[in-house]
Amino acid sequence: MATLELNNLHAEVAEDGGETILRGVDLEVSSGEIHALMGPNGSGKSTTAKIIAGHPSYEVTDGEVLLHLDKDEFETDGVEIDDDLTWDLLDLEPNERAALGIFLAFQYPAEIEGVTMVNFLRTALNAKLEEREELFEDDEGEADAEEEDDAGYDTSPMEGDVDEGEVGVAEFQQLLQEKMELLDMDEKFAQRYLNAGFSGGEKKQNEVLQAAILEPSVAVLDEIDSGLDIDRLQDVANGINALREEVGTGVLQITHYQRILDYVEPDYVHIMLDGEIVKEGDADLAKQLEEKGYDWVREDVYETA
């Protein structure tokens, strides 16, 4: 069981006189839950997602981002830990957050020429496994860490040569193929360069594929549904539902539209306005919103306030 917790999160653009974007966001996402975060453009949804993942362009001025991991979360890592752990994500680098199980599906994924999908994804998976070991060892004290260092790093002065790592090439090919089938992706994707020349829909599918490979505890999906035709929308929704059911991932889904929520039904809906969450409810709230629009929320909130 994992829980991502945002407490009173305030943030601004990281530059002199940077604009304030978040004004006290509170949110909790636990394993197996599906949350929808909705709101008009500029309300702070994407910023919230980027701050969770550690984007350097934003500065957190107040509040905290915590990740609670129950001890059962470490069993697969072969590490024995006696107590539940809480991590302050704001102290960690993006790759460390990812290793702990945070995943961000980008609204606009980077296009990286010259790096094949298969190489990128295997490197990512091995980096995650390796980094997890390090993070948990750091937490458990020096003695264990030294032992593991001796065992693990003799042959790899660089952090993760592409030819090495826990998951070998053959094993990874198998894994990748399975996940691609699930998302109805052509196997040729494996040899293409990361997002380079991908259509908008292919990029979104690829984000879900990456989540399926990395098996996150909490996945933040930033407009994963925008620009998808109905077939792709269904593939992507299947991928998200499989993450919840098979991996137990908690999902925070940022969207403008009710459409994807017909396929991925949220347990909780949060509506954001001007850097705060102003209204919360269940799946019905999203339907109401679709009918009445954000003006309804605005009137409702500011009248009662």
Binding site: P56, N95, G114, T123, Y193
Partner: peptide
């Protein structure tokens, strides 16, 4: 940032980008 968000450490990410370049 994209590569970091996929658990790839800074140094490895930079090396991959240079080799890909």
């Amino acid at each position: 940032f994209y590569m970091g968000s996929r658990a790839i450490p800074e140094r490895t990410a930079k090396n991959m980008l240079v080799e890909g370049f």
